[in-house]
Design a protein around this nucleic acid. Structure first.
Length: 416
RNA sequence: GGAGAGGUGGCCGAGUGGUUUAAGGCGCCCGCUUGCUAAGCGGUUGUCCGUCGAGAGGCGGACCGGGAGUUCGAAUCUCCCCCUCUCCGCCA
């Protein structure tokens, strides 16, 4: 959520943000409602004050006239309360639809074509001999899309034999580096989240169509570990000395991918369930952007160690998500499909999520303020798996195991 | 799934309709005192909304798991929901 004070102090800033992000929000309606809310609040406070004073008088002497006046006042209070409740409910709902304000360093643009290339790393393997992962994976018996369809339908994958081991190796490798070398605390959270959690991180109400919901229990399968990790400290005031808090977690991630029916239908570039290790930080506002750059480099470090060519792009205002103030994408080159694949999205939310989830900190001088939150994939496996098998395929049709993964794969140089 | 107990400030804990302005204790912070790893004495100590103020802060209101209700008045009474604990049942 944006700072609601901006509705009166600087509505143009909000208007501009909504426009840059290509959202549609009736801001004037919200501004009017906010003014209405404050007016009703003031009246109600005055009425309640009067009622309280009267009640104290009645406690001292039971005067029938006083009680009669108090009754009338109580009726008025009740009416105002009802009025306030209605306005507040509507306002709170609408506030959830105002997007975050992009950071000034973010390029203004409409779509992917306006994203800014920040850097490129590594040598791209190119040539006709590189097979796409679906041919390679099915051929080697390490992936099966046919079997997955039997179990769950389209856009799922079964990892088999060395494929399953490679998947598990990746998850363990990611977690080991982040916990042992980058200083993150490992969390293994639940995979189901309450509605409040998803409102807190900003997936709801806007992205409900993209999520798997367990209707009976009113719970959502997590679309990313960002959700549980950021909600770990919901409704808390964290002492400043505990900051920054750095968490990493493996979870399976579930996305309905509504509205992407024609895209990436072959293979596992886009699937409904995938594995991901997520990094989340809570910081002070002052250190936020430094920690954000550090988080990006923690994610990049993994790609480098796997020796996968990649590039980093800064997303333009039109391509970044609703809740984000600034987002970098890390994309690896996959030689078989001959394109870059997004393997990590690193975003800073400033106070946007903290306001929604009510996560604050107490500074050393006693002031209470919202924390900054940020997160990034570190990394998502299916596309890393794709890049590894496609880029590391050998002439004799096997996969060379990247050196850093060998300890996780029985020290083999090749699979199968 | 069934039965019972409970949820009060950073923490412990009192509080069954009206000086509760949430007792008391611990902790924290500040000051004083003391011949010193400590103790004693005194004081301070929440969050949110509104409003006034340049600011420090003042004033008003709300907040005792969440929500609705009864009442002139609710931490306290009623209803619904959530969570925790104990026992039973089922179960990886």
């Amino acid at each position: 959520m944006v700072d609601p004070k901006l509705l009166r102090d600087n509505p143009d800033l909000l208007r501009e943000a909504i426009q840059k992000k290509g959202e549609e929000v009736d801001l004037d309606r919200i501004i009017n409602l906010d003014a209405k809310r404050r007016r009703i609040q003031s009246e109600l406070d005055r009425l309640r004050g009067e009622r309280n004073r009267l009640s104290k008088e009645i406690a001292r002497e039971r005067d029938q006239d006083l009680i009669k006046r108090a009754k009338e006042l109580a009726q008025k209070v009740k009416e105002k309360e009802e009025e306030l409740r209605g306005v507040k409910a509507e306002l709170d709902q609408l506030l959830l639809w105002i997007p975050n304000i992009p950071h000034p360093s973010v390029p203004v643009g409409d779509d992917e074509s306006d994203n800014l290339l920040i850097r490129e790393w590594g040598e791209k393997p190119e040539g006709e001999q590189f097979l796409p992962h679906w041919e390679l994976g099915e051929g080697l018996g390490i992936l099966s899309f046919k079997e997955a369809a039997k179990i769950s339908g389209a856009r799922f994958v079964v990892y088999r034999a060395w494929g399953a081991k490679l998947e598990r190796a990746l998850i363990n490798f990611f977690l080991d580096i982040h916990t042992k070398e980058h200083g993150y605390t490992e969390i293994f959270p639940p995979f189901l989240n309450t509605t409040d959690c998803l409102i807190g991180t900003g997936q709801l109400p806007k992205l409900e169509a993209d999520m798997y919901k367990v209707e009976k229990d009113d719970l959502f399968l997590d679309p990313t570990a960002e959700v549980p990790l950021t909600n770990l400290h919901r409704d808390e005031i964290i002492p400043e000395k505990h900051l920054p808090i750095k968490y990493c977690a493996y979870t399976a991630c579930f996305r309905r991918e509504a509205g992407s029916y024609g895209r990436d239908v072959r293979g596992m570039i886009r699937v409904h369930q995938f594995n991901k290790v997520e990094l989340v930080k809570y910081t002070t506002p002052e250190s936020g952007y430094d920690e954000f750059e550090a988080l990006l480099s923690d994610a990049e470090d993994i790609v480098k160690r796997l020796n996968l060519p990649y590039r980093v792009r800064l997303l333009c205002t039109g391509d970044m998500t609703f809740a984000s103030a600034k987002t970098y994408d890390i994309e690896v080159w996959a030689a078989g499909v001959k394109r870059y694949l997004e393997v990590s999205s690193v975003s800073i939310y400033e106070k946007f999520q903290a306001r929604r989830a009510n996560i604050r900190y107490r500074s050393r001088d006693g002031k209470v303020d919202f924390v900054y939150t940020m997160n990034g994939s570190g990394l998502a496996t299916p596309r890393i798996f794709i890049a590894i098998i496609e880029n590391y395929q050998t002439k004799d049709g096997r996969i060379e195991v990247p050196e850093v993964l060998r300890p996780y794969l029985e020290n083999r140089e090749y699979i199968p």
